[in-house]
């Protein structure tokens, strides 16, 4: 990874309160245009609030969200999407009664994205054979892969993956890890919010640990995951669950 490349996405001093409860406190981080950063943390660490602030569902109480140099703090999700921010959801969020092809058509928003390019993307992701199938008939893994294809089809500047392997079998998880490695690594700025440590270590360049709504530590996966504080915070808490 190039250490000099500019951040494509950053949050600066972001805080979010719900009444008296501080869900996030002064969180800052950035993602380069060719970097994959994982966000980990025990339950209640503020990951979901962070995802909602990044995608525009919540407006931060304090701080700024920057995409490719532009302040997008107050923008709604659809405007962020049009500026090049794509995301997937923790639970596959597809539309009932629509085919894969129709989902891809929705994802390109009527742009003249080459039909051949779309088919090729589905082909590379192993979905082209089912293009005319209703998405409800797809396996969970294929549904998650389709979500990924929808997020990637317009070549976003920045991609937010919310637990991309949640609910997947071992084989499906391996497929997703390969996909992230082949299709995203070094090509686009990505934040992965993930529970599965093997996914984090196999896909990410950097890891940020959230705890009690604040950044506990950051660094490369091998350093962060060996940190005693992280073991206590994350693995200790996970073991407790």
């Amino acid at each position: 990874m190039s250490g000099t490349s500019h951040p494509v996405f950053s949050v600066e001093g972001v805080s979010k309160s719900f009444g008296v409860f501080n869900a996030l406190t002064d969180v800052s981080l950035s993602v380069r245009h060719d970097e994959i950063r994982a966000i980990i943390g025990p339950n209640g660490a503020g990951k979901t609030t962070f995802v909602n602030i990044v995608s525009g569902v919540y407006r931060p109480s304090k701080g700024r969200v920057i995409l490719d140099g532009a302040d997008i703090t107050g923008l709604p999700p659809q405007k962020r999407a049009r500026l090049g921010l794509a995301r997937t959801f923790q639970i596959a969020s597809l539309f009932r009664g629509m085919t894969i092809a129709e989902h891809m058509e929705l994802a390109v928003r009527g742009r003249d994205t080459d039909r051949h390019e779309r088919t090729e993307l589905l082909d590379r992701m192993g979905l082209s054979a089912f293009a005319d199938r209703d998405v409800q008939t797809l396996s969970h893994g294929d549904q998650r892969i389709l979500e990924m294809a929808m997020a990637m089809v317009l070549k976003p500047k920045f991609l937010l993956l919310d637990e991309p392997t949640a609910g997947m079998s071992v084989a499906e998880t391996d497929r997703m890890i390969r996909l992230i490695g082949d299709r995203l690594r070094g090509k686009v700025g990505v934040i992965i919010v993930e529970h599965d440590m093997s996914v984090v270590t196999q896909t990410s360049d950097q890891v940020t640990v959230l705890a009690a709504g604040a950044v506990a530590t950051s660094g490369t996966p091998d350093i962060v995951l060996r940190d005693p504080l992280v073991k206590e915070l994350y693995l200790g808490s996970a073991a407790g669950h």
């Binding site: 999700p77 539309f95 929705l106």
Partner: peptide, 24 residues
């Protein structure tokens, strides 16, 4: 038509449609 697929998408999951760039 495509426009009706957008309407159905918004009706089923407004946030999902917004994240795809549609003004729900």
């Amino acid at each position: 038509r495509r426009i009706w697929r957008i309407v159905r998408a918004v009706q089923q999951n407004a946030l999902r449609a917004q994240v795809l760039g549609y003004n729900a």
